[in-house]
Amino acid sequence: MPDPVSRQGLAQMNRSLLVNPYVLIAPGFILAALIILWPLASITNIAVHDVNRFGVLRDYVGFENFQVIFADPEFLGALRRTAIWVFGIVAGSIIVSIPVAMILNADFYGRGLARVIIMLPWAISLTMTAIVWAWAMNGESGMLNSGLRAIGVLDRNIQWLAQASTAFPMQILIGILVTIPFTITIFLGGLSSVPDDLYEAARLEGANGWQVFREITLPLLKPFVNIAVVMNTIYVFNSFPIIWVTTQGGPAKSTDILVTYLYKLGFQYGRLDDASALSILMFVLLLAFTLLYVRLAMREEKA
């Protein structure tokens, strides 16, 4: 039997630990800060210096590295494509996910199976997905061409990755496919929080399907759409494997986005200083977008 006094003392101590929020957040904060702030500081430091390709700091150069990035026509091209890439995937996945989530929210035979299938892309690493698709899009041996030929859509092979006009849309399509599971999960969560009697009531009042969707479902989904936009934008903006594995940003840089441009700058061309400056720029860009979007979304909600 434990001594009652010391046990009480222990409880006292435990309680004080439990009610001290700083103690509670400390482990999480320290770990996250170490792994995130320390590298951020180190990158910021590199970004304002002239640095050789092995990261040895030389002179302080202020914003010169940033100017180099802004003056690089490839940066502007990559920026433009990043905008298309992010918008295409985020919008595309939301447009597909809303109806699919509605179907999956209703009861039907095999719903469990359908949910599992549609969630599957989530279970594969993006790198592996991209490797499989790159192989499937191979102009000669790829099963995409042979499949489309078999069902009569194509009468000759397409070299999917030979030019941006086919490669980039396919990359966006793959991006949409892998973004859908997360988006649908969020929407399903939203839909399941809608009480059924709301629909019953609407139907009793004679509203048709479209009206129910517009007047009830969509407004209820709105906060969830906002979450999907913010989370997916962050994720897609930083997404690297799809483009890297399929085209490495080529041919002739025509599918380069900011992350692949960053990777080339830093690790292929050895321009660590410019790459660090670009890292900071990308972070600021994303931060600005997110803050702007959250603010707009909140204002709309209030209005």
Binding site: N138, G139, Q159, L161, A162, Q163, A167, P251, A252
Partner: peptide
Amino acid sequence: PGVTSYNRED
């Protein structure tokens, strides 16, 4: 056809 999608291995 489509030489820009053929790497050395292809």
